[in-house]
Amino acid sequence: MSTATEDKHSAALDAAESGATQHVTFRLRIRRFNPEQAAEPVWVDYELSMDPKEKLLDALHKVKWEIDGTLTFRRSCAHGICGSDAMRINGKNRLACKTLIKDVLGKPKNGVYKPITVEPIKGLTVLKDLVVDMDPFFQAFRDVMPFLVAKGNEPTRERKQSIEDRARFDDTTKCILCAACTSSCPVFWNDGQYFGPAAIVNAHRFIFDSRDDAGEQRLEILNEKDGVWRCRTTFNCTDACPRGIQVTQAIQEVKRALITRRI
């Protein structure tokens, strides 16, 4: 049952319907690398004229589709769910599909905007342009057994859980494995052996799940020298997470569970 709202047009709706967009001209400064052409990456500037309300991913598409088809980057859903397009935009890890151009454009000086820099995420080997080798990242993820382990007393229907027990690990279920957190961590940059925030977040999701029986085993894995104790609480991961997960807090909860041996 809907009531007619056609006679109640707001100014914003009028503007949207008129199709008028305010284009701005800015430069996208992309760190490009092609191992078949040069041993070192180079910065390349692209001048674009776009609506600043569009996403940074749209700007990358514009470069790839209209200026230089060799630009290489990962993206899939383009709506912040698949986690493919984590990259370093103006020095910070973000998802290109969840970043609006206007939010990274800054203020113009004498009518000219500072270029928006786009780089691959740090700490993983760059394969080409913005594409990095994600294998070490996913290996750390696999190592913490990110799946439900339950033995005995198999219920005939679903495994029941109270609202409180479910809330315990709610925050860490949001992870989309984009690697924005792990590749923002100074400890991970210096030593890729560290499990990294994303793997710990996904271990946390099962350690604190009342239906799971392998919490002790996961805690032992994270008690190793490349586990949670490498965390130096720089909070870069928490700031970088596009899903707003309190990553450092999750890591601290795992540390405390290891000390008190209570889940």
């Binding site: 990456p41 100074p186 609480t233 909070f235 700031d239």
Partner: peptide, 10 residues
């Protein structure tokens, strides 16, 4: 590349 722009924590 550029330096990572971390916040107060970093």
């Amino acid at each position: 590349g550029t330096m990572y722009r971390g916040r107060e924590g970093m």
